[in-house]
Simulated assay, not measured.
Amino acid sequence: MNHTLIKEITHDNRKIYPQVYMIKPGPVTIQQIPNLQYVSQEMNTAFHMDWTGHPEPLGEQSMLAKVVNQLKRISKESLGYKFKLMPHEIIWHNSNVNDTYSVTQLMQVPDCITVEMFEEARTCVQRNLRNNMLPETKLIGVKSVLCAQKLHIGHYRDTQITLQEIYDFVEEQGYKVKGNHREIYLTPAMADCHPPETWKTIVRVEIGR
């Protein structure tokens, strides 16, 4: 492997997987999502969607970005591989009786990230947290799945409108929804720079016959 060449490139998986992360405004589409690797964190959390920024788990409460930032450093030092942070993703599971939600947070990471690199990253984050415990995070691989998806433009609290469009489309096309829906938050958490009417969120559901 020519590490000299690799060091000159910062890999961006948005561009490597445009059908996953760079979809354009328009109707619902069906897309085969390739095999992808993620760092994941299970959470039970409250979402304050009236706040003008990202939902709470996408802010300081999330440890995902800290772990992935360490992976960026480790992959650069050990492999000469530089990559950009990917957007936060949330799989929405159940709403609970105490106004919290069970969710899975994810950030996609390159295939070159190994379990050993992930454990090293977790150790570094834990060391920086001192007496606070790092929540459980995992390195997971997800196999290719068929999905229906649409780009939602506007406030996050209105994504249910887009989700219903997807559900209607899936039924019309003779498919069935498999599992919980996913939202991918493309807009950075800087509400003053990005007014809510411009926020971009990919809404996606896995489907099958």
Rank of each mutant, 00 (worst) to 15 (best):
N98A: 06
P188D: 00
I202W: 13
L64C: 01
P135N: 10
E172Q: 10
M133L: 05
G141Y: 04
G26Y: 11
I9E: 01
S62K: 11
V142R: 09
T162I: 07
L36A: 04
V170L: 09
Q41F: 10
T100D: 03
P55W: 05
S78G: 06
R14Q: 14
Q105S: 11
E60N: 11
E77V: 06
V68R: 00
V28P: 05
V20C: 08
G26P: 14
D111W: 09
I33E: 07
V109H: 00
S95W: 15
M133K: 12
P34I: 01
K72R: 04
K72H: 10
H48F: 09
T29E: 08
Q173N: 04
E77W: 15
H11F: 14
E136C: 07
I74S: 01
Q70D: 01
H194I: 09
S78A: 11
Q173S: 03
P25N: 04
V115T: 10
L5R: 10
S95A: 14
H88R: 13
L146S: 13
I30R: 05
I113Q: 05
K178N: 05
P55G: 01
S40P: 09
Q105W: 14
L129D: 03
P135F: 06
K143Q: 15
K24S: 10
T201Q: 03
R127G: 13
Q164L: 15
H93M: 04
E42C: 11
K15S: 12
P110Y: 01
V205D: 03
T187W: 13
D50M: 05
M22S: 13
G154V: 06
L64G: 15
L85V: 02
Q31S: 04
V68W: 02
I33M: 13
N35M: 12
I207G: 09
N96V: 01
W51K: 14
Q32V: 13
S102P: 06
Y167Q: 06
H194Q: 11
R130N: 15
E171A: 08
G59V: 02
N132C: 13
R73H: 05
M22N: 15
V125R: 03
M22R: 11
E8Y: 11
G174Y: 02
M190G: 14
E165W: 08
L71A: 00
K72N: 04
T201V: 10
G26W: 15
V109E: 00
G53N: 09
I153A: 00
G154L: 14
K72T: 01
E172M: 13
D192M: 12
I161E: 03
E197I: 11
L139G: 00
P87Y: 04
N132V: 12
M49K: 04
T123Y: 10
V177A: 00
K178E: 09
I153F: 05
S62F: 14
K143P: 10
E89A: 05
P195G: 08
N2F: 08
G59N: 11
K66L: 15
L58G: 12
T114K: 15
L146K: 13
Q108K: 03
W199S: 09
I30D: 06
T29M: 06
V39T: 14
L64E: 03
G208V: 09
V142D: 08
E8P: 02
T137P: 14
T10S: 02
R204F: 13
T187R: 08
I153Q: 01
K143I: 06
G154S: 04
Q108R: 05
L151I: 07
P34L: 02
Y81R: 00
N94V: 12
L64T: 03
T137W: 03
I9M: 00
F169L: 00
H152L: 03
L36M: 05
W92I: 04
